[in-house]
Simulated scan of single mutants.
Amino acid sequence: MVKSCEYPDICNQTGSGSVGTTNILFNTKCCSSDLCNYDSALNFPAVNNTQNGLTCKACTGGNTQDCFNNAAPVPCTGNQDRCLVSSGSLYNKPYVISGCASSSACNFLTVISNGLLSITRTQCFSASPMVCYNCSGTPANCTNEVIACDASMACLKSSVRLLFGGETHDLIVKKCGRQDICNQQITGNFGSTKLYVQMECCSSDFCNSDSSLNISGISSTPNDLNCKTCSSATKQDCDKNNTVVQCTGNQDHCISSSGTFFTNSHHYFTGCASGKIFSNKSLLSVLSGNMVNIEEDMQCAMNSNLSIRCGFLVEHSLILLASIGIYTFELFI
């Protein structure tokens, strides 16, 4: 039994959950006067064991991977209309549970915190979730954490290569991703600075386990677009010292903008790029340690006449973020 102060939105609710052979029932009651919650009598809702057609993965474990490595399908019953994944601590030890739950249980399990049980995250899905690896780092250091994803999404692996300052920086990103960004290529040629991104998707548990860099499918075939390329400290330097190059592959726009590279190196850059990646001035952003922070509106066009804001040309947005030593690449979904 738990007695405490709580918000009204969890008042007077009943619900249930099942995690394999473990069943959970709860009933909340509220009152609004001093010491009014004195009653200690247990009062549980009636049990409904009628299967309702929903099946969820049921498991318990010290972390998400341990849990789902031993998950088994369980039929949901009664008002259990959601698949739940919840994490926190029980008796001061980390835990993850997955199974069937009612919608009211999803709300209730976001607010519990007492000396024995603390819930830090609860996810509820309308169908059994898919489980994907979730990490960001160099190919040798992408630590494989695990995350539960909505079944409508895909497990994503992105390979990123940035050539900047005469050095090559490689990055692997694994996470849940929208289906519409699957198996796409993003490239940019800004003279001495170049960007290559290859996104791959799959649709089964733990399928994005591969941590090897894969940009082999990115096309280097010249296309019909020519752009001025430059990566320099100022726009004036690029206006005086630029090279016109023939764009390649899916580089369908000339773009121009400026920003801060790796925390303290301000650069203006212009060149060929895949138009899909640009949505607004914050699409290239940074955290500590950094890659790029855009400081002005990006301009783009289908020729070297850079006079149009990029925002309306784009289908998807990306953000290049920094962390894990050099930087982190993250797709906002």
Score class of each variant (00 low, 15 high):
G166D: 04
E167C: 07
E167R: 13
E167Y: 11
E167N: 13
T168S: 13
H169G: 05
H169S: 12
H169P: 00
H169I: 15
H169M: 11
D170G: 06
L171V: 06
L171G: 02
L171K: 08
I172S: 07
V173T: 14
V173P: 00
V173A: 13
K175M: 10
K175S: 15
G177Y: 01
G177E: 01
R178C: 08
R178W: 10
R178E: 13
Q179R: 13
Q179D: 10
Q179N: 12
Q179L: 12
Q179H: 10
Q179A: 12
D180K: 07
D180I: 08
D180L: 08
D180V: 08
I181C: 02
C182R: 04
N183T: 02
N183R: 01
N183I: 00
Q184N: 11
Q185V: 11
Q185T: 15
I186H: 08
T187W: 03
T187G: 10
T187K: 09
G188P: 01
G188I: 02
N189D: 14
N189L: 05
F190D: 00
F190V: 01
F190P: 00
F190E: 02
G191F: 08
G191D: 07
S192E: 09
S192P: 00
S192R: 09
T193G: 14
T193E: 09
K194L: 11
K194E: 13
K194D: 10
K194I: 09
K194H: 09
L195I: 15
L195P: 07
L195Q: 05
Y196E: 13
Y196N: 11
Y196A: 15
V197P: 00
V197H: 02
V197F: 01
Q198P: 00
Q198N: 15
M199S: 10
M199E: 14
M199I: 15
